[in-house]
Amino acid sequence: MLTVGIDIGSISAKAAVIQDGQLVGSKVMLTGYNAKTAGEKVFADLLAELDLARDAPDRIVATGYGRNSVAFAHKAVTEITCHARGAHFQDPAIRSIIDIGGQDSKAITLNEAGGVRDFAMNDKCAAGTGRFLEVMARALEVDLDGFGALSLKAQNPAAISSLCTVFAESEVISLIAKGARRADIIAGIHESVAARVAAMANRVRVQAPVMMTGGVAHNIGVVKALEAKLGYPVQVSAYAQVNGAIGAACLAAA
């Protein structure tokens, strides 16, 4: 059985193919303006890369904010359920997921079968999401990819107290003006993201082992800050960005 999961997020579109319980390929691209064409393109490109015909998949499940715009999917399932299923596929021992994506963050707790026990999502606010980090990177004129490594060099993490992205940005600008070190400011930014996400995670009583997914999982600074706040290790998914698509492909096979 060959199934495909398509995850249309606010920033990137992801696809994953699963054949007989094995992940055979995945792909990430920018969603852009049109979620519908993004879904079609990521699907077509991945199939082409894998040398598969368009009608090869037996079933397709769409997820993410654009889940209802994938007309060729057999079913739409929310990213909450898909992330849980994806993490379970990667490691059945996982009991909690912390996902930080472009526009939102969520904490999910799982049962033994990979089903959702409880979940929480951030409120309508960019703080504690990938977008927040992007804004900060711009203010600091640092490439976002270098954020994680740079923050590990911090000696004295700055305190970023504002919960609002716009206010936090002006806090950062005033820290720059005061001559604070870049590494310290970035570490402070990571701590503020971690504090927000950890509070949400505690609300649903996350339990170890915890897997982190979403694009921000690649930022080692946020992961370390989160581990410090939660008090136990956080496992970074090898497929952090495509975990939702993998889960969708698993559910398509179910």
């Binding site: 399932v77 359920t81 309508k124």
Partner: peptide, 21 residues
């Protein structure tokens, strides 16, 4: 101004998926 349809929709859908599972 404090209501975000897509966020609320995802939460409701996910909650119902959880109840139905």
């Amino acid at each position: 101004r404090s209501f975000s349809e897509s966020q609320v929709e995802t939460r409701i859908d996910a909650f119902m998926e959880m109840l139905k599972a």
